[in-house]
């Protein structure tokens, strides 16, 4: 597909809404004092959102029926979690994850 007006406009529009989602909060937080309750709430965002991102990859979603488990990803996640607890090194954790997945694919 050659680049055309349709592709270009879509990319620019998508870029704009994404950029605004990223930047507007920074501008607002810089200029206004957030209520302490909201700050407290936001302090849970890292753990909550990272959990949701992991779960999103371990479950298979299909609207209208209960999510099912992606057993391949689940299987690779087990040694990855073990590696995290033992090594506490992000680089090693990622490498263990990649190797676990490669090995699982080789076996299945």
């Amino acid at each position: 597909m050659k680049i055309n007006t349709y592709l270009l406009l879509t990319i620019l529009g998508c870029g704009l809404v994404t950029w605004l989602s990223r930047v507007v909060p920074f501008v607002l937080v810089k200029n206004f004092v957030l209520p302490s309750g909201l700050i407290k709430l936001l302090s849970f965002v890292p753990v909550a959102i990272m959990t949701a991102l992991v779960v999103q990859n371990i479950l298979i979603f299909k609207t209208g029926s209960w999510p099912t488990i992606n057993w391949l990803n689940f299987g690779a996640a087990v040694p990855t979690v073990a590696g995290a607890i033992i090594t506490k090194s992000l680089l090693i954790i990622v490498v263990i994850g990649i190797i676990s997945m490669a090995v699982l694919r080789l076996l299945t």
């Binding site: 992991v54 992000l90 954790i93 990622v94 994850g97 990649i98 997945m101």
Partner: peptide
């Protein structure tokens, strides 16, 4: 490309960062 296991790197990274976040805070 999936046979290299590289597609799981993102998930592994979030697992690692989540664990480190939990014990780090």
């Amino acid at each position: 490309p999936e046979s290299f296991g590289l597609d799981f790197a993102v998930v592994a990274m979030f697992i690692g960062l989540l664990y480190l976040q939990m014990i780090g805070d």
